[in-house]
Design a protein around this nucleic acid. Structure first.
Lengths: 224, 224
DNA sequence: GGTACAGTTCGATGACCAGCGAAGCATGAA
DNA sequence: TTCATGCTTCGCTGGTCATCGAACTGTACC
């Protein structure tokens, strides 16, 4: 039996569902009504789409009281979506203006579970020039110096030793068209930013906002 | 403007088109009628689908006499398709039997422009254990020893120095569920196999066939 | 020239499916 | 209990689009 990419494609290939999925690329779990608003459809139709996405194994649900929280099923799904996003920007907006029109989104946003946008790209480049990451085209890995650096920052290297997910991984930024940092370290950096209260999250979008002081601390910390 | 992954998805999300695309994952350019046969539809409908795919920038055409040869537009498209293939096998055939039923396909096949299947995975693992590749999860890179080895084999390292495509890249095998080797080196290895006449290509599928002698030479060459 | 074949255009048909209104169920709050 | 809210089920409607038959253009080969 051939793997059925057609059903997968048609699941993504509907406007409303595509909106929902991109909204969920923010990494947060969203309720059915939130997703309905996002896709600009009524609750009834949203239900239909959501059940399709769940039975299609692209989403998972968690019931909490009278709310239902939906989430992307795993990183593989997120990866596929991100690659589709990248490809589609390349195709649809070839050389005019790249990426999101909202400047805040363009500056800093969440890409599933890590940081993207201008600042994400700056971070990536900075880490490379400092010799903490080694970039070899699409493939990127952490240098020994990088390991020591992130350990010192509080990243628990051993906790991720057995994980199937790569420690670090470059992710093509669909607004900037260059790499930013994904993988376990990318995730950790973002989490850490929230915990250290350097950034806050906009409620209604993937954008993240740096406080003035947060931005300074961030740049100092990663030598930007 | 948001990137439009919906149209991209719906392009892939049709059975006939999906068949055509997976057929083209073999890397060879195919004619319109060949693709029509592949998708089991008439020539007229094939034309419609193909024009859609071309205007959607997923395929490119080359006219040659009275034939039209279609091909995937670039690796990015191939990458998206491969990731979709992988995801869909994970989803649809969860734990029963992985991958293609055809044993020849399972043993050795072309994945766009490099070698996949059991033998592809063997090659990858062999290169890793010999210290020619360094595998760090999803990210893989060529070691210095590996550079020397491939240079000696006749791979022109300098020719790819400026290429945006990574020299080596792991690609998740959808039948074996482990990595095989993609990237420029993966491509070179496959080309070399054809040139050295160690393998021949089946006309109608992605499967490649090793001659007995070819298999021996291949294993000797890469220390398997 | 004529014949065969590759690919196209057009129009008609039919199926699928997103969308919503209306009504119903379930949970939590007053 | 009553009300509000979140989500669901049902049935209908309309639009979109894949499919094919029939007829057409263009290329190749004899």
């Amino acid at each position: 039996m051939q793997p059925d990419i057609a059903t997968l494609g048609s699941l993504i290939g509907d406007d409303s569902r595509a909106h929902m999925l991109t909204a969920l690329m923010g990494g947060k779990a969203l309720t059915a009504t939130e997703l309905a608003l996002e896709a600009d459809i009524t609750a009834q139709t949203a239900t239909r789409h959501l059940t399709q996405l769940v039975t299609g194994k692209l989403l998972t649900v968690r019931k909490q009281g009278r709310h239902k929280y939906f989430q992307l099923a795993n990183h593989q799904v997120a990866d596929v979506l991100e690659s589709l996003l990248t490809l589609s920007t390349q195709l649809t907006i070839p050389h005019i203006k790249t990426g999101p029109s909202d400047p805040a989104l363009r500056f800093a946003r969440v890409c599933y579970d890590h940081l993207a946008g201008e600042i994400g790209v700056q971070l990536y480049n900075g880490l490379v020039t400092q010799g903490l990451l080694l970039d070899q085209g699409d493939v990127t890995h952490l240098t020994d110096k990088g390991r020591r650096f992130f350990s010192k920052q509080g990243f628990d290297m051993d906790a991720y030793a057995g994980s199937k997910r790569p420690l670090c991984k470059s992710c093509l930024d669909w607004s900037e068209r260059t790499n930013h940092l994904a993988g376990s370290i990318g995730k950790w950096i973002l989490q850490d930013l929230f915990e250290q209260k350097m950034v806050t999250r906009r409620l209604d979008s993937r954008a993240v906002t740096f406080s003035d002081r947060g931005l300074m601390r961030f740049k100092a910390r990663y030598g930007l």
